[in-house]
Design a protein around this nucleic acid. Structure first.
Lengths: 235, 235
DNA sequence: ACCTGAACACCGTTCAAGT
DNA sequence: ACCTGAACACCGTTCAAGT
């Protein structure tokens, strides 16, 4: 508001502009990495609706337009977020695990990243980025090695991954939904329906609670079903 | 701008405002029903991103703000769209169909509405509206009648519906995606990844094509797995 | 009761300009 | 090479005003 010149001499010791930098924390220089990191944090904390270029810039102590020097568009940013999050997948199984153990681990790892980043999970309808499609290839290979014919290896993988995607998308959607939001917020579900759902939920109170158990039941059922299929196609 | 009184007499015969009404087709009066109908059509044709209050108003030959006389918010509008589309579900099975046939029909009907309205399907992470949650109850009852213990009836239903949701959301997402959009449009998938995917797709060319077959394989596997479970819990 | 126009506080992105 | 400010063409929604 007062003097604005003398920008390039730094003889004054009190201020070098570093500290006067507005609410955001602009200390290190901007980079794709730093932007994605901040974006994931913002979405984790405030949800996808809260992510705008302006808001993200602010978070990084920078003008919105500066982001475009490192990221071509918001769409690319979203894709980068998905990529970053899915690359956290880390299925654990021993070297001599059978196909069921391997696929169980793979699907479990996928669910875990969903639970770790529930508000990011909605992005998963995009084509899978590198890390995830690498995982897909591995799993299909596992199925193939286990004796599934080529076509069935693909279909069996689709079957498992469809189940997990569906399960986790319901799970994360409910995790993110506080009851208040249900009736008036983003969703605007009519009130009588909220009541009806409440009733249905009370009815199965303890039941609906245990997502882990529900997840495993479905996963094991699918694995059992696929095992039947595998045996049937063994010569 | 000129005279503004004489509002309640209607002696002028030339114009009653009906024909001077701007590009849109404002013939019948506005109503929630008419709005939802236009909204579904707009989303079916142009996608969810194209649906804005202003655009929808224009489609109906009316100012955006007029919509708020019949619909409380855009969120409510979206929910209405989902409701309307999901109410099209119509599973067909004979009166003496067993649980597998019933569930197969139920899940098939769900997939069909997804295929009929691929661009609407993304809304399905919202809590299910009346028609769909009625269907859910029916299916859980079927499972219960077939001998599944109460808890397993719920979980088995979740398992099936999770599979279908996951499958159809991948299916509709790919249906909606033209290759051009992949690399530059909304998705902004990096080019080398597009190539990699192309390669993977070519590898399984004829395979990936047949979604119907893939869907049935997974569904039957799940049903088989659940049948094993059911038999196991029959005393 | 229903429709409108102007306004508010936002968006993503382009572009010319600064350093 | 990277950052900025102003501008453009949009958003959803409030509110006072018209009929």
């Amino acid at each position: 508001m007062t003097v604005t010149n003398m920008s390039q001499n730094q003889d004054s010791d009190q201020y070098d502009g570093r500290f006067a930098m507005s609410p955001g924390r602009q200390t290190r220089t901007l980079s794709r990495e730093r932007i994605l990191q901040a974006a994931v944090r913002l979405v984790d904390e405030q949800g996808l609706e809260a992510l705008s270029m302006r808001r993200l810039g602010q978070e990084l102590g920078v003008q919105a337009m500066s982001l475009y020097n490192h990221v071509p568009s918001k769409a690319a940013l979203l894709y980068g977020i998905l990529e970053r999050v899915l690359s956290e997948m880390n299925p654990l199984y021993g070297p001599d695990a059978d196909w069921r153990e391997r696929l169980r681990a793979g699907m479990g790892a996928f669910r875990q990243v969903g639970l770790a980043h529930p508000r990011v999970f909605a992005l998963n309808t995009r084509p899978w980025p590198g890390a995830a499609s690498q995982r897909a290839k591995e799993d299909m290979q596992t199925l193939s090695d286990a004796g599934f014919p080529p076509k069935q290896s693909v279909f069996a993988f689709y079957a498992l991954v469809s189940y997990v995607v569906g399960f986790v998308s319901r799970e994360t959607a409910t995790l993110m939904r506080d009851p208040a939001e249900l009736s008036e917020g983003l969703l605007a579900v009519p009130l009588e329906l909220v009541a009806a759902r409440q009733e249905l939920h009370d009815k199965f109170a303890s039941v609906a609670a245990d997502n882990d158990e529900a997840f495993e039941l479905g996963l094991e059922a699918m694995l059992d079903g696929l095992e039947l299929l595998r045996r049937r196609s063994e010569t």
